[in-house]
Computed example of a mutant assay.
Amino acid sequence: MALHMLGKDPNSDNGQSPTIYWDDETDHYVLQGWKLEDSAQLAGLDLPENETVIVFPRRMMPIFPEVKGSGPVD
């Protein structure tokens, strides 16, 4: 898997997460974010054992190439 960082949250402390990556082998995005730890929200999810949930701010959506209007990652 060859990950390419597309961008970090400009509002995060010290350049930490969340971060958006693109995997050029699978053509998938990989998202790094904060753990969802709210028990009420987690209880409302149908979360398989092999999956996890992160919190990801809406303000980061423009980092995705398709949202920027530049099409898929090359």
Rank of each mutant, 00 (worst) to 15 (best):
M1C: 05
A2N: 10
A2M: 12
A2T: 09
L3R: 15
L3D: 03
H4P: 05
M5A: 08
L6Q: 12
L6A: 11
L6Y: 14
L6F: 14
G7V: 02
D9E: 02
P10K: 04
N11W: 05
S12Y: 06
S12V: 01
D13I: 05
D13N: 04
G15M: 01
Q16D: 07
Q16K: 14
Q16W: 08
S17I: 08
S17G: 15
T19W: 02
T19G: 01
T19V: 12
I20Y: 01
I20Q: 01
I20L: 06
Y21H: 09
D23P: 03
D24F: 10
D24L: 06
D24R: 09
E25W: 09
T26E: 10
D27Q: 08
D27M: 10
H28N: 14
Y29N: 11
Y29R: 07
Y29D: 05
Y29P: 10
V30N: 13
L31F: 14
Q32D: 11
K35E: 15
D38G: 08
S39V: 08
S39P: 09
S39I: 15
Q41L: 12
Q41D: 07
Q41E: 14
Q41I: 14
L42T: 06
L42G: 11
A43G: 10
G44N: 15
G44K: 09
D46C: 07
L47E: 00
L47P: 03
E49D: 14
E49A: 13
E51C: 04
T52A: 10
V53Q: 00
V53C: 05
I54G: 02
V55E: 00
V55H: 00
F56V: 04
F56Q: 02
P57T: 01
R58D: 02
R59K: 07
M60P: 14
F64G: 13
V67D: 13
K68Y: 07
G69P: 10
G69W: 07
S70I: 09
P72A: 15
V73K: 13
D74G: 12
D74S: 12
